[in-house]
Design a protein around this nucleic acid. Sequence first.
DNA 1: CCATAACCGAGACGGTACGTCGCGTCTTGAT
DNA 2: ATCAAGACGCGACGTACCGTCTCGGTTATGG
Lengths: 215, 215, 215, 215
Amino acid sequence: MSPTGGRPRDPAIGAAVLAATIELLREDGYTGFALEKAAVRAGTTKAAIRRRWPVRQRLVIDALASVLVTPPTPDTHCTRCDLQQSVELLAEALDTRLPQGVLAPLVAECAADPELHRHLLTALVEPSRSAAEVAVRRAVDRGDLRPDTDPGLVVDLFASVVYQRALLGTAPLDRAAARRLTDLLLRGVAVDFDRLVEISRLPAAHRHPQSTTRS
Amino acid sequence: MSPTGGRPRDPAIGAAVLAATIELLREDGYTGFALEKAAVRAGTTKAAIRRRWPVRQRLVIDALASVLVTPPTPDTHCTRCDLQQSVELLAEALDTRLPQGVLAPLVAECAADPELHRHLLTALVEPSRSAAEVAVRRAVDRGDLRPDTDPGLVVDLFASVVYQRALLGTAPLDRAAARRLTDLLLRGVAVDFDRLVEISRLPAAHRHPQSTTRS
Amino acid sequence: MSPTGGRPRDPAIGAAVLAATIELLREDGYTGFALEKAAVRAGTTKAAIRRRWPVRQRLVIDALASVLVTPPTPDTHCTRCDLQQSVELLAEALDTRLPQGVLAPLVAECAADPELHRHLLTALVEPSRSAAEVAVRRAVDRGDLRPDTDPGLVVDLFASVVYQRALLGTAPLDRAAARRLTDLLLRGVAVDFDRLVEISRLPAAHRHPQSTTRS
Amino acid sequence: MSPTGGRPRDPAIGAAVLAATIELLREDGYTGFALEKAAVRAGTTKAAIRRRWPVRQRLVIDALASVLVTPPTPDTHCTRCDLQQSVELLAEALDTRLPQGVLAPLVAECAADPELHRHLLTALVEPSRSAAEVAVRRAVDRGDLRPDTDPGLVVDLFASVVYQRALLGTAPLDRAAARRLTDLLLRGVAVDFDRLVEISRLPAAHRHPQSTTRS
DNA sequence: CCATAACCGAGACGGTACGTCGCGTCTTGAT
DNA sequence: ATCAAGACGCGACGTACCGTCTCGGTTATGG
């Protein structure tokens, strides 16, 4: 697998290319990103880049991964605070550290190739979720969240809201929005959940508009 | 603004181009989409297309809008069912009707131009959300959801989870997943929400691991 | 065949490209010739060149043809002079007007494609031969050369000697060499041609070393 | 000059490279010939080839020389036959043994470097001419050709016509063509050579169209 | 009624990036 | 010192779209 003979690769080149890639993504966006520019900026050539990343998407993924580090959510013994901060950290990682408008087209392009898609998930998505997932799991263990809580689903909700906000360009999740989101997930929106479940099990004919209001 | 004299546009061309665009997006994805191919497929020329859509992104937006119709969620007098179905309909619209992997890069490219971005939101995003928003608002009016519920936030959660699932290629939100999502939002995950709020208002020093477990 | 619609080609571009091609061939030789350099020098782009000459060899052929003009050999009523001058004019055309070392690789590359090869012959070779062929034919008509003379063969000899000199880099056929060549062809080298023919018809056994010297 | 110590060169490599070079030239032509392919075909590496032939043209020259052997023209005591056969042998050597369309671009590329050019002449051109030159000289000695005959010039004519035929793709000099060429050179084309010389020495004014026909 | 004006088809124009390939050089580790 | 292996900077290749433009011809309405 690993080449026995031959001139070894210059490790400086790989690093320079990653750095140049990030810079260019930040300047020109994803579609404006050109391999040739990256080569020039990194002081090397297209061929040298292709040797390391035969597929351009891999290069972009690795470049993003090199700047996307999500610090672990600190344990404050306050579930509400922990979860709020998890959302904020996630939002900060995606909105601030990553170049704008890169993740979306990248993911779309990777959708076709399964291997590429897997690499993207493991290199970019999973790490950014893990901090939040740890916090949720901690809250469950602490007894603050119901024992049947699916941490993955909760983090999905955190992550996807953050993602969509960034994607659709609405205001980037501030502290107040993070609180509203967290509280909504903690508390739920139903006035009486059990009653709603009960109704949903009735045959359709027995449901009446007024019946939903408890007598 | 509108031309007074001159030869009127052939209305068939516009429709043919939209249809060809959808086909090509489905076949080649967003980056593989070429204006010239669309012209050939529609039996016309680049120039004729450009006269109608000077900016390519507008063409793609309009083409997507022409196939993205979200039917209104029917009122079954069962809030739980209604919300579930809203999620499912949303998922179905985004996953099935739209070509895969087109929306994401499109949004990313539109992010720069505010006008383009606004058009995209109003032409694509808003319509697909409105059905769900109506259902949520109905449930609030019915008294099933707490009166302080923010319908927009709830729909955001529905929409973003649908979007992320579709985008990241996780399983495309089947019926069971829709139920789990709905129930989670209705019921919340906290064992005792008020207590968590209380704790979060204490100074950090007074929080202890054991204190979160109610005596 | 001829395009009915469309923006007409800028004729200046074609001319500029031919001129640039000649210049570059003169500077860098055939193998050093690059389409991209020609585009830059002509103030245009590769694509514009390819529209006119999809095959690079065609471009080179046409460029050479644009500078290779062999003036008709003037009639001096002196066969010996005419032929000498034909050779000299031919040599001058090939050695002086054409860039050095271009014709040879060009011909070699065209050998594979019959159509290309035909174009090369008609565009470059035939014109340069015709002047000499006219002169030879005139000499036959005048009665100075034997009536059974094959003008094509004679011109072949002229042309090929000129070509080989240019090719192999031996001194470029000066006036004296042209005279020697012409006289050799006019006079022949045999002491007694008829006798040599006679001998060649004998059975091999009857030929003796001494027998060739006339008694 | 010659290395004293170190690992000795594997003599098999040189031979394998020459053979591979000939094969590839025959398959891909001169411009299609790539050093890397030759290395692979010969079961070795570029570096090993470069050690032996630092300049690629040298490799091609040596490869061609390894297959270009012109057997001596046998002495049949028939000048006409000998010369004919010289031409045929020459044609056969150049047309059959050498890969097509290689010599021309090679010569063109070598034209720049004098040393390279000299090597090419001595390694390829001279040997193929020598057999014919011996035959011509023999005919002079035998008294069949005029004593003032320049053997080099005669061979030049033979060789160049062969070369041009092969190069320009006209029929590859069959037996009949060889005879016509030989006879033309032996006999000349002038009806009365001495008279043509006489005329050429007159002032231009004294030449008249009718004067060339002897009364 | 016919001129104006916008349409349509066709296609050339200058750009720019793509991915591939070969060059000639250099750097390893091992024989 | 040679060998196999392969990275390196360089630069040209041919392909494909982009967005713009220039045509000749067509089709409506408004002076």
